[in-house]
Nucleic acid binder design. Structure first.
Length: 488
RNA sequence: GGUAUCGUGGCCGAGUGGCUAGGCACCGGUCUGCAAAACCGGCUACAGCGGUUCGAAUCCGCUCGAUACCUCCA
């Protein structure tokens, strides 16, 4: 099998061997959330996808600088009144300062990401903190003649750009098609062509979030922040740019155009896009109003949810699908993920207690190789998980005395599971460790009492203990060598 | 309408020319005072129709269906 990491590059539409520009250093920029509402399941997908990529790149030895932005300015409400900043609108409704809203939802986003065991990026820049950089970039584009001023706003001249470069090379679009298919919107009359996009937008009087610029008091266009901030922290040409597939056009396409003009080259070498999470076959998204927030998943407080699902269940659910496939949400699918994860975690625990013998009845290194091959093949986490389940058969077999394993193979196996389950997939055991010993001690006492009752054939008493425990959410399992327990 | 992606067993999902993942559910079995859990085993699908090939879920064509984007909708 291929030993090198291959990643699917959206711009070439094929898998390519990953070769960083300046190894072992690797720069990765991912479009982060717009903090004007609670994070929903759709937000979890890119976060977990690029967390997986971040973790794996580090694991195989790259020194990664991972930049994920916070968008806190500049986006318009599509159903809103006139050209109003999303953040500003929410702020007025709730009588809060815009930055207070930003802070509130940023904190909540961080809390959710922490629950999902998503590592913090190396740098998390905010658009509002980089207005100067964005203005400087716009100046450069104006100087080079690829933008024009119109009524205090600055627009990128897509037609001129397309005469010299290729607008649409990332998304596969042809400018002529765009021309004939663009809808009529207000504000369009400021533009020379409907497909031109704003670099700087003059603020309306009611617009609270505004900054001074050479052209007007206003705010930067949607695409400006990512170009400006990625260039600042990763350089004008870096390795990986990621984000959701819905950002392909026009966002990323426009980033390419801006960077090409401002910096003289395309921003990055590899474009990675995660697919959407669907609900009843449809994209889960803010604008469709069919989203379920992460907090609702964790608490089960949503009409579509049959029960609460833990953060690790959500994480495992997402990792069980390849990041470039759509993933369909359903209670059944989540419950399947929940049970599968539990089985996997119990297998990991069993693994720690295994005894070795003189021979191995299984090829452990092959299993290990399979896992790395899967990750090297465009981060194929579902295949990794399938192999880990395959390994479970070995683990349980050894535990049952039906299979054998040598001490060195056992070490490899333990190492493999620790590496992949916890380090790379980023899963964690959700049982609270600090309290575990105490609870376990208490449980042993209780189980001993129950065993005593059973020995005396006082089954009424032993069943009562079991039933009481079930009410507390603790399941007793009677095995060959005594009873054990687990939290449901 | 344009661009792109996709259609896999009851459900979720891998897989790109032969070796026919994995999970959940289901059915058997082991264990057990009973139950549950756990473990073991079983379950052979690839939208339809043509074509290429010794051989196709995998390549090509057509048909049907779905989704995303085409708006500063992140």
């Amino acid at each position: 099998m291929e030993n090198k990491l291959q990643i699917y590059n959206t711009i070439s539409r094929k898998k390519e061997v990953f070769e960083p520009i300046n190894p072992p250093f690797t720069g990765m920029y991912v479009c982060g959330p717009t903090v004007y509402g609670d994070a929903h399941l759709g937000h979890a997908r890119p976060a977990i996808t690029f967390d997986l990529i971040f973790r794996y790149l580090q694991h195989i030895g790259y020194k990664v600088r991972y930049v994920r932005n916070i968008t806190d300015v500049g986006h318009l409400e599509n159903d809103a009144d006139e050209g109003e900043d999303k953040i500003a609108k929410k702020a007025r409704l709730e009588q809060l300062e815009p930055m207070e809203v930003v802070q509130y939802f940023t904190d909540r986003y961080h809390a959710n990401m922490d629950q999902l065991n998503v590592k913090m990026p190396s740098i998390e820049p905010k658009a509002s903190g980089h207005i100067i950089e964005q203005i400087e970039m716009i100046k450069k584009i104006l100087e080079k003649g690829f933008a024009y001023l119109s009524n205090g706003s600055v627009y990128f001249d897509v037609k001129k750009y397309n005469d010299n470069y290729q607008y649409g090379k990332l998304s596969g679009r042809v400018l002529d098609d765009l021309l004939s298919n663009t809808r009529i919107l207000d504000g369009q009359d400021e533009k020379q062509n409907s497909f031109d996009f704003a670099l700087w937008k003059k603020a309306q009087p009611e617009h609270i979030m505004r900054w001074p610029s050479p052209w007007s008091d206003g705010f930067p266009g949607w695409h400006a922040e990512c170009s400006a901030m990625s260039a600042k922290y990763l350089g004008e040409h870096f390795d990986i740019h990621g984000g959701g597939m819905d950002l392909l056009f026009p966002h990323h396409e426009s980033e390419i155009a801006q960077s090409q003009i401002a910096n003289g080259n395309e921003p990055c070498k590899y474009w990675l896009h995660n697919n959407m999470i669907t609900i009843n076959g449809q994209k889960m998204g803010k604008s469709l109003g069919n989203f379920i927030t992460l907090d609702e998943f964790f608490s089960g407080s949503h009409a579509s949810l049959e029960k609460a699902y833990s953060p690790m269940t959500i994480r495992f659910f997402i990792l069980q699908a390849h990041y470039r496939s759509t993933l369909d949400f359903s209670n059944e699918a989540l419950q399947a993920a929940e049970k599968g994860l539990k089985r996997l975690m119990q297998g990991v625990e069993t693994l720690q207690k295994l005894n070795s013998s003189a021979t191995s009845s299984n090829d452990i290194s092959k299993l290990s190789g399979n896992c790395y091959d899967a990750m090297n093949d465009d981060f194929n986490s579902p295949i990794v998980i399938a192999n880990l389940f395959e390994g479970l058969r070995i683990i349980n077999g050894v535990n049952d005395g039906k299979e054998s394993i040598t001490a060195s193979d056992l070490e490899i196996l333990k190492n493999l599971y620790n590496t992949f389950v916890f380090e790379i997939l980023g899963l964690k055991n959700e049982v609270e460790n600090t309290q575990f010993e105490l609870v376990d001690g208490l449980m042993q006492m209780i189980l001993n009492q129950r065993q005593l009752a059973k020995t005396n054939k006082d089954y009424a008493a032993s069943d009562k203990i079991r039933d009481e425990l079930i009410k507390l959410g603790i399941v007793v399992k009677d095995g060959k060598e005594g009873s054990s327990w687990s939290i449901e």
